[in-house]
C-alpha cells in the first residue's frame, strides 16, 4: 500500500502490538509475518478477551478485526475509550462493506487496511499508527470521497467538520489512485509531514462529523 519506512521503530524499543482476530490461523499467519519487526505481546479472539489483554499489556498498537464475537471491533474501541484511551487501533478486515469500514473508523480506529496487505506494508502501517498518524488504504480513501461527496448547504454546515478542503480531497484522490504518502507529497509539492497532517485531519472529520449524510450514505449504500 505504501512505501515502507525503513525504520518503523519509535525510539529504541520495538513496537508492542496486540493481535485481535477470531481466526487463530489468521493470527498465527500475521504473527509470523510481523514478528521480526514488532513485538507481539498478546492475542485475543473475542471482545472481552481483547479488552482484557489490551488493558493489561497496554500495547502501542492493536491490530483489530472488524468482525468479532461479542459485538465486533467497534465494541472493543468503545470499551477502550474509557479503560485505555491512549491505545491506538488499526482495523484489519476482509469486509468490503462501507458500513463496516466507516463504522470502525468512527468508533475510533486510526486506520483501515485489508487482510491481503503484505507483511512489510503492515509493519509500516503499524509504525505509522504508533506515531499518531492515520493509515488510509486506497479503498478507505474511496469511501471517504464518496461519503463527503454530497452537496451540503452552507446553512447546514455548522463547522468545517462537514466537508473536506480542496487539498484534503486532492490527497484522498491520490491515495485512492494508489499513491503512497511520499508519492502524494512529491506530486503536490508538499512535505510528507503535511500529507500526514491532511490525512489525520480527514480522519478527524470522519470520526467527528455529525453530518447525517455520512450515516445515511453508509445506510443507503449498504453494499459496495
Amino acid at each position: 500500500m505504501t512505501v515502507s519506512d525503513p525504520n518503523p521503530v519509535v525510539g529504541d524499543a520495538q513496537l508492542r502490538v496486540v493481535l485481535v482476530d477470531d481466526h487463530a490461523m489468521f493470527r498465527t499467519g500475521v504473527r509470523a509475518e510481523i514478528t521480526a519487526s514488532v513485538d507481539v505481546v498478546g492475542e485475543a479472539g473475542d471482545v472481552d478477551a481483547a479488552v482484557e489483554v489490551i488493558v493489561r499489556t497496554r500495547p502501542d498498537v492493536v491490530l483489530l478485526d472488524v468482525h468479532l464475537p461479542g459485538g465486533g471491533g467497534p465494541e472493543v474501541l468503545r470499551r477502550l475509550s474509557t479503560s485505555a484511551p491512549e491505545v491506538r487501533c488499526l482495523a484489519l478486515s476482509v469486509s468490503d462493506a462501507a458500513e463496516d469500514v466507516i463504522g470502525v473508523i468512527r468508533a475510533g480506529a486510526r486506520g483501515y487496511v485489508t487482510k491481503t496487505i503484505s507483511g512489510e506494508d503492515l509493519v509500516d502501517a503499524i509504525g505509522r499508527v504508533a506515531a499518531g498518524d492515520a493509515v488510509f488504504s486506497p479503498r478507505l480513501a474511496g469511501f471517504v470521497l464518496d461519503a463527503f461527496a454530497g452537496h451540503v448547504e452552507v446553512a447546514q454546515v455548522d463547522s468545517d467538520l462537514d466537508r473536506l478542503t480542496e487539498r484534503e480531497r486532492e490527497v484522498m484522490r491520490l491515495i485512492a489512485r494508489g499513491y503512497a504518502y511520499k508519492e502524494v507529497a512529491k506530486e503536490l509539492f508538499i512535505s510528507p509531514k503535511t500529507v500526514e497532517t491532511h490525512v489525520s485531519s480527514v480522519l478527524r472529520k470522519l470520526q467527528l462529523s455529525s453530518r447525517h449524510e455520512l450515516t445515511r450514505w453508509a445506510n443507503d449504500r449498504r453494499l459496495i
Binding site: D22, V66, H67, L68, P69, G70, G71, G72, P74, E75, S95, A97, E99, D100, G103, R222, L223
Partner: peptide, 17 residues
C-alpha cells in the same frame, strides 16, 4: 433492517455491532 448476506451472517453471529 436488511443487509447483504455477509453482513447479516456476521450480525447474527454477534461479530458486528
Amino acid at each position: 433492517d436488511t443487509a447483504s448476506p455477509g453482513l447479516e451472517a456476521a450480525g447474527r453471529r454477534g461479530l458486528r455491532t
